[in-house]
Design a protein around this nucleic acid. Structure first.
Lengths: 146, 146
DNA sequence: TGTGAAACTGCATCGTC
DNA sequence: GACGATGCAGTTTCACA
């Protein structure tokens, strides 16, 4: 994990479909060398995968919310969580609430229906997202490069 | 946006670095046709980009938390948010709190330091993530395909 | 839009340092 | 580890349906 690996991570976090050749040009290193470094970063688990970022609104999902939930019924609630397509992110947390969910639904009505199902598992509190300033900022500190 | 587009989105959300040829095999369609559909999905903004998923712990970031914040000082707080590398996701929300942040830091000590800076902008409440059940589940309902 | 064929480009691999 | 060369795989482009 040196400076070059950081550059690779930064570039590929920006655009996961960039070709290895283009990357090798950007960081002034041969193509096989970049390929080998990428392979190792994947192997070590530094890179866990590559995902397309999709637009919820273009997929007719207009409501995003965070749901905090306090449940005793953990086993059952986790099964419910796995099976609910509305839940995009699912975290266990410390504090008054033991679960935090990011939920994306078509409208506020479908969110309401989801919350009613949630409330069978415990007490919940919901924060509706009004707007997203940014999402998924790079974890790599040194993001400055060409 | 037909069934084939859904398949393309599902596949590319799963693995953004898949080749178009491999995709064209999976969905039994010619490679130029898939390329053209991909191009349109990007152009329409359905696909907003492609990101590598990095492992926080492999980058020596062991603490993830969600910070709820109530601030009157919105302009200044948003500038602070833009400039803070610890903040990975930044949302404006309805309810008692008007901001929700996902924060990733090295340790609980660095989280504490960050929270102290936050508290100059208003009242905050923090939920520390104990574990992540899943993250970034597909928005495309029909995720079943080979 | 979708297809098939041809030219081009990028990638995996190997030998070398 | 990184480089340069090479054969193969993937992509782009185009004429045609």
């Amino acid at each position: 994990m040196d400076q070059i690996d950081n550059q690779i991570l930064s570039i590929i976090h920006e655009n996961a479909r960039i070709t290895v050749s283009e990357m090798s040009r950007k960081i002034a290193m041969s193509q096989p060398a970049v390929t080998e470094r990428l392979r190792k970063l994947e192997e070590q688990g530094v890179i866990k995968g590559y995902k397309a970022v999709l637009s919820p609104s273009k997929l007719i999902k207009y409501t995003t919310a965070f749901v905090l939930l306090k449940s005793n019924n953990c086993k059952e609630f986790e099964e419910f969580g796995e099976a609910s397509p509305e839940i995009i992110d699912f975290y266990r947390t410390s504090g008054e609430y033991n679960y935090l969910l990011k939920v994306v639904t078509a409208t506020s009505e479908t969110l309401e229906a989801f919350l009613e199902r949630c409330n069978t598992f415990g007490f919940s509190s919901t924060l509706v997202v009004l707007s997203t300033r940014f999402e998924d900022k790079s974890l790599v500190a040194d993001a400055k490069l060409l």
